Structures are given as structure tokens and as C-alpha cells.
Amino acid sequence: MAGPDAELTIRAIEAADTYPLRHAVLWPDQPLAYVRVPDDEAGVHLGAFHDAELVAVISLFVTGPEARFRKFATRPDWQRRGVGSRLLAATFAAARQLGAQRIWCDARQDAAAFYTRFGLRPEGPVFYKGPVAYQRMRCGL
């Protein structure tokens, strides 16, 4: 299998293009509608493609100086290969380009260490969505 730098591109996609990967990676036991976000149509959605195959997705929502990213999903066979790091870096760049000064997310607690490498820091208490523990994380851009 080729490395992540071979033929990896990141580009804007439609919200609906994110749904299958969001569903398969984040909430496979829920109905597909569960992975939709009410303001999906207002977001900027990015996909990482290896050749023409979508391997990771993320959604960015900017309101004034605040940006939030949500529904960050990387196919399991592409995890721990740098794809998510490249996609998150592109998301931070897009947020800055759209005028955001800060960025935040509700991170799955088991992924918090990954986000700290990008400067995000925990904020507030741990909370749960179903059985999954989350931590709000934030940083300046």
C-alpha cells in the first residue's frame, strides 16, 4: 500500500460526501441520519483523497472569530499514517483564511493527545454523548 504522501490531495467536498465516512468511522451503530449536523450546509467540508478514493473527512464551521471543526473521520486503514494530521492542518489554514482567530472542537477523549499536538488544550469538564467520553478543546490560530 502506498504511503500517505503518494497521491494524497485535500480538497473541498459537499456535506453529503462526508456522510458515509462519518457513519462508518464515528457512529456505525447509529442510523446514517445520526451523523448529519443541522448546519452542515453552512460548513466547509474537506476530504483527503488517495488517488480518487476518499480516506478522511472533516467539517469546519466559522462564526465570526470562532471556528469549530466537527465530524473528523479517517478510514481505519489510513489512521496513524499522517493523513489526519495533514487534513487538520488544512482545516486550521482554512479557518484562518475565513477570518477565524480561535478554533475548537469536542474531541473524543481517546483522541485528545492527537489534538494537543496542534496546540488545542482541554477546556471544561469531560462529557458524554452516549457511551463516548468527550473533552472540549480550544486554541488560538
Results as ranks from 00 to 15, higher is better:
1 M>R: 06
1 M>H: 09
1 M>G: 15
1 M>W: 06
2 A>I: 13
3 G>P: 04
4 P>L: 02
5 D>M: 14
6 A>Q: 13
6 A>L: 12
7 E>A: 11
7 E>C: 05
8 L>A: 09
8 L>Y: 03
9 T>I: 11
9 T>R: 12
10 I>P: 10
11 R>Y: 04
11 R>D: 08
13 I>C: 05
13 I>L: 04
13 I>A: 03
14 E>K: 11
14 E>L: 07
15 A>S: 15
17 D>A: 13
18 T>S: 13
20 P>S: 10
21 L>H: 05
21 L>R: 02
24 A>V: 04
26 L>T: 08
27 W>H: 09
27 W>G: 00
28 P>T: 11
30 Q>K: 15
30 Q>G: 00
31 P>Y: 04
31 P>G: 05
31 P>C: 05
32 L>Q: 14
32 L>R: 10
33 A>S: 15
34 Y>L: 01
34 Y>I: 02
35 V>W: 00
39 D>G: 02
41 E>L: 11
44 V>W: 06
45 H>V: 08
45 H>M: 02
46 L>A: 10
47 G>S: 08
47 G>F: 01
49 F>M: 06
50 H>I: 08
50 H>K: 09
52 A>E: 13
53 E>M: 04
56 A>H: 02
58 I>A: 04
59 S>Y: 02
60 L>P: 01
61 F>I: 07
61 F>H: 12
62 V>K: 00
62 V>T: 06
62 V>R: 00
64 G>P: 07
64 G>L: 11
64 G>D: 14
65 P>Y: 00
67 A>S: 10
67 A>W: 01
68 R>Q: 14
69 F>H: 03
71 K>E: 01
71 K>S: 05
72 F>K: 01
72 F>L: 08
72 F>E: 01
73 A>E: 01
74 T>V: 15
75 R>T: 08
75 R>H: 15
78 W>Q: 12
79 Q>C: 04
79 Q>Y: 06
79 Q>I: 06
80 R>Y: 13
81 R>Y: 07
81 R>P: 01
83 V>H: 02
83 V>A: 10
84 G>D: 05
84 G>L: 05
85 S>L: 00
86 R>T: 09
87 L>F: 11
87 L>W: 07
88 L>A: 03
88 L>H: 01
92 F>K: 06
93 A>I: 10
96 R>E: 13
98 L>P: 04
99 G>Y: 03
99 G>C: 10
100 A>D: 03
101 Q>Y: 02
101 Q>C: 08
102 R>V: 11
102 R>I: 07
103 I>T: 14
103 I>Y: 01
107 A>H: 04
108 R>Q: 14
108 R>Y: 04
109 Q>N: 13
110 D>G: 09
111 A>V: 11
111 A>P: 03
112 A>S: 14
113 A>E: 15
114 F>D: 06
115 Y>T: 05
116 T>Y: 00
118 F>L: 08
119 G>L: 10
120 L>T: 02
121 R>M: 13
121 R>E: 15
123 E>K: 07
123 E>R: 11
125 P>L: 08
126 V>F: 06
127 F>N: 11
127 F>Y: 15
130 G>W: 09
132 V>P: 05
134 Y>N: 09
135 Q>T: 10
136 R>E: 13
137 M>S: 07
138 R>A: 09
139 C>E: 10
139 C>A: 14
139 C>K: 08
141 L>Q: 09
141 L>I: 14
